[in-house]
Computed example of a mutant assay.
Amino acid sequence: MKNIAVIGYGVIGKRVADAVKVQDDMNLAGVCDVVSDWRIQNAVRKGYSIYAATPEAGNEMKAVGISVKGNVQDLLAKADIVVDCTPKKISTKNVEYYKQKGIKFIVQGGEKHETTGHSFSAENNYKSAINLNSTRVVSCNTTSILRTLTALKSAGLLDYARGTLLRRATDPWESHLGGIMNTMVPERDIPSHQGPDAQSVDPDLDVITAAVKVPETLSHMHYWNVKLKKHATKDEVLNAFKTSSRIKLIQYDQGLVSNNTIKEMFLDMGRPWGDMYEVALWEDMLKVVGDELFYAYVVDNQAIVIPETIDAIRALTGIETDGAKSISKTNESLGIN
């Protein structure tokens, strides 16, 4: 049983905390933040131990009746590993502190690979993360790229891949603060950062990405053109994707024609926040023409990295050395498949 500290109780942090709570080999030591509003008050209602990131934050929390267990140092003293879910400028500073304290830590995909020297995707490189001091769980888009291309690569089908990403403009709960309206903003650089990021996990991937920011908040959408190593049938490709428990094949012809309808399906399934931990890939849209493959899928930017983070905790702490067993355990706890 390992004690887990969550620093930053935002979009990712609250989901990581809830996921930790349903694991039978982990204990949530507490959550730490600077806010005292409805966000951290929801953590109080869930019975989580609350820690203040700064003295000022602690005073504000106490002023609104929140029972503060202590500060960051107090929380880390109770933890075997810390999952940092703070914004990247903050987490960069926190990393130096974790290193000074000699505590294992996980950062999210907003950080650079060099921050930890190891980037994590459970189906790719779980084994290489076992007992490391730190890792970076790659971003939502990179996670989806690795899941799908790894499935094709493992089946001996992947030669190279070229993808176009339609990226959400901002997070749903911050859409009143910024984002874009009635326009699209292409990223200037090709490849966009996701392709090289995927190669930080698997250097052998021949992948190039381009990205466009679009005026919506629910998710990202990817279009892929893959050169196969041989002529293949659609069934061969689908069977390759089915080897990943975190790719969900969906049907356009069953009314799942957009990201909002897919989100609604997961809400109806009873997932918290309607979270989709899987890559939702359109089975009936997928086309194979000779040795070329075309497919599209949707990525839940708020949820896809949550199971990866749980697996990363197991790998770094060494409580499970078999990646397949960890993935299965995480899937069962979160209701995947």
Rank of each mutant, 00 (worst) to 15 (best):
R168Y: 03
Y295C: 11
D74W: 07
H231L: 06
A151E: 11
I250V: 15
N124S: 10
G8S: 01
M26T: 08
V207N: 02
C85F: 05
G102D: 02
A280C: 10
R39S: 13
T142C: 12
I66R: 11
A77M: 08
Q108H: 08
K227A: 10
K46M: 07
V138D: 03
E111H: 15
T261S: 15
L228Y: 02
D300N: 12
I262H: 05
N71T: 15
F105G: 01
N259L: 12
R15D: 04
I106Y: 01
A312L: 07
G335R: 07
T209S: 15
K21S: 14
Y297P: 01
R147C: 01
V95D: 06
D24F: 09
D18Q: 08
I7C: 05
V34K: 14
S128K: 15
G274F: 13
G8W: 00
S192G: 11
G323T: 09
V212W: 08
D18T: 03
K14C: 14
W38K: 14
A129S: 14
L149M: 14
F266P: 03
S333W: 09
K230T: 07
N27R: 14
T148Y: 04
V31T: 09
L281W: 04
A57L: 10
D189E: 11
M269P: 00
S91Y: 10
W282R: 00
G58M: 07
D253V: 10
E278F: 03
N3F: 00
T92L: 09
D80P: 07
R188M: 12
N337Q: 04
N3P: 03
I66W: 07
E320I: 09
A324K: 14
T116D: 04
D206C: 07
E264F: 13
G195L: 08
A19W: 09
K242E: 03
S134V: 04
H220K: 05
D197R: 07
S91T: 15
N301I: 10
R39M: 15
I66K: 08
H118F: 15
L316A: 06
S192Y: 02
V137Q: 12
G30Q: 03
V22N: 04
I40W: 10
N131Q: 14
K325F: 05
A155H: 00
R188S: 13
T92I: 13
I145Q: 01
K213P: 00
E123C: 00
A312M: 11
W282M: 01
Y51L: 06
G10V: 09
S328V: 05
N337D: 09
D18Y: 00
L316D: 04
P55F: 09
G30D: 01
S245W: 01
D74Y: 05
V35G: 11
I262Q: 02
V44R: 08
D33V: 13
T170Y: 07
L249N: 03
A19L: 09
K242F: 00
